Simulated assay, not measured.
Amino acid sequence: MKIKDIMTSDVCVIDPEDSIGDAARHMAELDVGLLPVGENDRLVGMISDRDIALRAVAAGKSAETKVREVMTRDVKYLYDDREVEEAAENMAQQQLRRMPVLDRGKRLVGIVSLADIAMDRDVGLSGAALRGISQPGGAHCQSESAA
């Protein structure tokens, strides 16, 4: 099965000149944690709730900060004509739970997530991808050793 058969194609794209406050509101309305950033009909970045928390809020930036200042510019993506198995392997290698999907003209056509793969008939793929994506985190301040 191809990625285009399982991806989410109805994707909200935000402009890099929009504020991170706008991005956060869109994320809340859509119940998503990631938005593609587009400019001149091209994907120029991605902004996640984590980008907003770590690169903006933790750095003391205001809600009026431009998306361009905190977005991830090095975007990993998949082509829509690739097999689902390739997507699962790629997501595991990159340790990503969601990836934008482009057509061969490099136009954004959707997003594929681990959940999309899990809904595919071969549930084993999502397990393999999840094992590759999920790596132990660093020391947490809530742990006993930090006390």
Rank of each mutant, 00 (worst) to 15 (best):
A129S: 03
V44G: 03
A118R: 14
E144K: 12
D10K: 15
K76M: 11
G45W: 04
V37C: 07
A128L: 13
R98T: 12
Y77D: 02
A147M: 06
L78V: 13
R82C: 11
M99W: 06
A28P: 00
I20P: 09
E64R: 13
R73Y: 04
L43D: 02
E29I: 02
A118G: 05
A118I: 04
Y77K: 08
V101M: 01
V112G: 04
P16F: 05
P16Q: 10
T72W: 07
L35V: 08
E89K: 14
Q142I: 07
A88K: 03
K66A: 15
D10G: 01
L96M: 15
R68G: 00
A146P: 08
N40M: 04
S126K: 07
V13A: 09
D51R: 04
A88E: 06
L108P: 11
A118K: 14
D31W: 00
E83I: 00
V123D: 03
S9N: 15
C12W: 12
R121D: 15
E85V: 13
L30I: 00
K66E: 15
Q93A: 14
P100H: 00
R97S: 13
G132L: 11
G137K: 10
R50M: 10
D41T: 09
V123G: 09
R50T: 12
K66R: 14
E89V: 13
L54Q: 12
A118H: 11
Q94I: 01
A23D: 03
M119Y: 07
